[in-house]
Write a protein that binds this DNA or RNA. Sequence first.
RNA 1: GGGGAGAUAGUCAAGUGGCCAACGACAACAGACUGUAAAUCUGUCCUCUUACGAGUUCCAAGGUUCGAAUCCUUGUCUCCCCA
Length: 423
Amino acid sequence: MGFVEELRWRNLLHDITPETEELLNKEMVTAYIGFDPTADSLQVGNMSQVMTLLRFQKAGHKPIAVVGGATGMVGDPSGKSVERNLLTPEVVQFNLEAQKKQIAKFLDFDCGANSAEIVNNYDWFKNFSFLEFIRDVGKHITVNYMLAKDSVQNRLENGMSFTEFSYQLVQGYDFYWLWKHKGVKLQMGGSDQWGNIVTGTELIRRIEGGSAHALTTQLVKKADGTKFGKTEGGAIWLDPKKTSPYKFYQFWVNTSDLEAAMHIRTFSMKNKEEIEAIEKEHNEAPHLRKLQKALAEEVTVRVHSEEALKRALETTEILFGSSFEEFKKLDGEEIEGAFDSDVTYRVSKEIFLNGTEPVGLLGADTQIFPSKGEARKTIQGNGVSLNKEKLNLERKISADDLLYGKYLLVQKGKNKHFLIIAN
RNA sequence: GGGGAGAUAGUCAAGUGGCCAACGACAACAGACUGUAAAUCUGUCCUCUUACGAGUUCCAAGGUUCGAAUCCUUGUCUCCCCA
């Protein structure tokens, strides 16, 4: 199955310039995708683009990831309704290094002709003066052309700085430079990048009469069309320090059937037959959640590691699989290891001496709830469990409730677990 | 430049002197049912609080009034129509 055909099957293809597919079927092509260093880690949404590069490489082509040391200094207006604050050069540099490491985990940099590369567009912009740029590049594109882009049109009402307006030209020049110096013939990206990408192909055509291609993919969305990759606690990051592997795994396991079917096409390297087999198995015994688990396992291993997945599975087993009787069999080290630091709270043992009110413990002594009122409301709504037993307001919590004289297992809702350690 | 409409909680959107912490819808969170799913039903949903209650809200600042989201003044911003 060809690269484009593959994307089509996975429902990932959004738009493609004519003859691109023929070109890809004919020869090894070098293509790039740009990454904006707006944060110090990629999040799951960005990951679909890295997967596109990976698929591209597996199809026998050469992928290049461009980190935006230059473009990141300017700021892409696409999809933004208001002018953004500029990042300082130090932040851009820091973010870019972090993202580079993450992207590197996905691709193969040592497989001969189609080895992947990561380059930084700052390298070809740093010695390019403003005057040179507006003479050598700006002269080839009319303002009329740039003005027609959606990313600009959407901002005409509320205003847009010259800086952001010029963004498409800066990104367009990237494409030109890569085309000229690295033989890149194709730029890919999310569907919001179409305008920026074709400014590049236009530049190549006007400066040198060359031809280059564009291909965009569907932006990942939830089943209801809302933003993907956000949870109550915020975005899901690839950086294990920002989103623990356990949380990461849980994010995928928790998706609905509909979304899991969509996402496995986007984020799994499994082929059509394998995915369809898993779906069939899932539909025969949906309660086993085969689809979600297959997705979560594969993605967790790719982003983190086998070892991280193993730990995430162990934690899942401890928190979801077992009764309190089984939980009690674990030793202290195993219990503490199962909880991330942001769901672990330490309190003084003394507060349990005469028994303590659940509201105070959960809403004040710990930050499991933001206030006592919140804690009370959720407890009243039957939403809190202590050591796997539903909690009510009258229930006093005493030293007898502490496992090993130290641990208290708290659940908020069905799947948010907390550990209180009494010292 | 002239004329008109508007700004209400995360979003949309009622409310036009006391019954307003403010109808309703969506989102979000929780419960039941399930499969850590969906759909459905139920509860919560400005903040804090020992279900009492307290505090701060309806663009901003002043004012009228016993009492204002609602009336008046000024300012800021948005939208529409005519030039």
